Amino acid sequence: MKFVPLFLALATLTTAADRVVPREGTEWCNIWMPNANNHDLPRVLLIGDSVTQGYGPDVEKQLAGRAYVARLATSRCVGDPVLHAEVAAMLGAETFDVIHFNNGLHGIGAVSEKEYAEFLPQFIAHIRKLAPKAKLIWASSTPSHVNGKFEQTDARNENVKERNSIAAEIMGKEDIPVDDLYGLMIGYPECCADSLHYNAAGKAMQGAQVAGEILNLLPAKAK
């Protein structure tokens, strides 16, 4: 196990005092690190939001016996130094072979798409600095639907699609594969639990696809 002091990890980052950081009414973070003392299997880290938190257990089940799957789910959006601090805490505690990450649904209306395009590469650079040997996979953000009428997308979905397009271009430049969860879920409104989240069937679909993408990048002995 390694330890990276947060003040070193964050030394080159913009602080909240340097710019106005948009906040949600309630900010939250959930960290899950199973089998913390075992190192006989590769380690995988899922970074995302409540959608990631939803499919995380299904990814664990799919990769049982092949990898240990940790996750960091957070409400922080790119451009927030606290997001970098949360990631630094995870990557300072353990070494990961594969990192499957997403950020996009939070911050809509507070961070412009222009700012998103600026901050996302900084987020990637931060992860690579702290986990230089990890293989990265980007996940596109899932659709935003009209609550109660899940066959319809809502106004926010235009932002989701634009951010996914921005991210896809950046990932192409960064040589990072994209796990298209948007494309997976857009045709299954019956799998919605509310405007942004999914029922058990939806979580299982996402978990299976995420696990398959991760499995392609795991060390050969784990496959």
Results as ranks from 00 to 15, higher is better:
residue 134 A to N: 04
residue 222 A to G: 02
residue 158 E to R: 11
residue 33 M to V: 13
residue 60 E to K: 13
residue 183 G to P: 07
residue 219 P to Q: 15
residue 178 V to W: 07
residue 142 T to A: 13
residue 27 E to I: 01
residue 122 Q to P: 00
residue 4 V to F: 08
residue 123 F to T: 08
residue 32 W to P: 00
residue 97 D to E: 12
residue 157 N to F: 05
residue 50 S to N: 06
residue 89 A to P: 00
residue 4 V to T: 13
residue 216 N to H: 12
residue 216 N to K: 15
residue 68 Y to D: 15
residue 204 A to C: 00
residue 204 A to P: 00
residue 53 Q to I: 00
residue 77 C to A: 12
residue 181 L to Y: 02
residue 14 T to H: 11
residue 107 G to W: 03
residue 109 G to N: 09
residue 13 L to M: 07
residue 160 V to H: 09
residue 154 D to M: 12
residue 141 S to H: 10
residue 151 E to S: 15
residue 135 K to H: 06
residue 69 V to E: 10
residue 120 L to K: 10
residue 149 K to D: 12
residue 29 C to T: 15
residue 156 R to F: 15
residue 150 F to P: 09
residue 26 T to D: 09
residue 211 A to N: 03
residue 67 A to T: 11
residue 213 E to T: 11
residue 190 E to M: 15
residue 72 L to P: 02
residue 207 G to H: 03
residue 62 Q to C: 08
residue 102 N to K: 01
residue 36 A to V: 11
residue 184 L to I: 07
residue 177 P to N: 12
residue 123 F to W: 13
residue 48 G to V: 05
residue 88 A to L: 05
residue 54 G to A: 14
residue 217 L to D: 02
residue 100 H to N: 15
residue 144 S to K: 12
residue 161 K to I: 14
residue 209 Q to Y: 04
residue 144 S to D: 04
residue 164 N to A: 13
residue 11 A to H: 02
residue 33 M to E: 01
residue 99 I to E: 05
residue 221 K to H: 13
residue 197 H to T: 11
residue 29 C to L: 08
residue 82 V to H: 09
residue 172 G to T: 14
residue 24 E to D: 10
residue 153 T to S: 08
residue 176 I to W: 02
residue 21 V to D: 04
residue 3 F to G: 03
residue 210 V to Y: 03
residue 186 I to M: 12
residue 64 A to C: 02
residue 134 A to K: 01
residue 209 Q to T: 01
residue 17 A to P: 00
residue 121 P to N: 06
residue 31 I to Q: 12
residue 9 A to G: 15
residue 220 A to T: 15
residue 216 N to W: 03
residue 82 V to A: 08
residue 28 W to D: 01
residue 69 V to M: 03
residue 149 K to R: 11
residue 10 L to E: 03
residue 144 S to T: 01
residue 208 A to L: 03
residue 214 I to Y: 10
residue 185 M to G: 02
residue 122 Q to I: 14
residue 75 S to T: 14
residue 171 M to R: 04
residue 18 D to T: 09
residue 79 G to K: 07
residue 91 L to E: 05
residue 16 A to V: 09
residue 209 Q to F: 10
residue 114 K to P: 00
residue 194 D to T: 08
residue 84 H to G: 08
residue 201 A to F: 05
residue 27 E to T: 09
residue 162 E to D: 07
residue 115 E to W: 02
residue 78 V to C: 13
residue 80 D to C: 14
residue 120 L to F: 15
residue 77 C to N: 08
residue 91 L to V: 02
residue 106 H to S: 11
residue 120 L to R: 06
residue 171 M to Q: 03
residue 90 M to T: 01
residue 91 L to R: 06
residue 74 T to K: 06
residue 211 A to Y: 01
residue 38 N to K: 12
residue 8 L to G: 00
residue 180 D to N: 14
residue 160 V to F: 14
residue 188 Y to K: 13
residue 187 G to R: 10
residue 73 A to E: 01
residue 212 G to P: 03
residue 79 G to H: 05
residue 51 V to M: 08
residue 202 G to V: 05
residue 188 Y to F: 14
residue 107 G to Q: 04
residue 15 T to E: 14
residue 171 M to Y: 04
residue 76 R to Y: 15
residue 75 S to C: 10
residue 24 E to H: 14
residue 200 A to T: 09
residue 76 R to Q: 13
residue 103 N to T: 11
residue 64 A to Y: 01
residue 26 T to H: 05
residue 126 H to R: 10
residue 133 K to G: 01
residue 9 A to C: 09
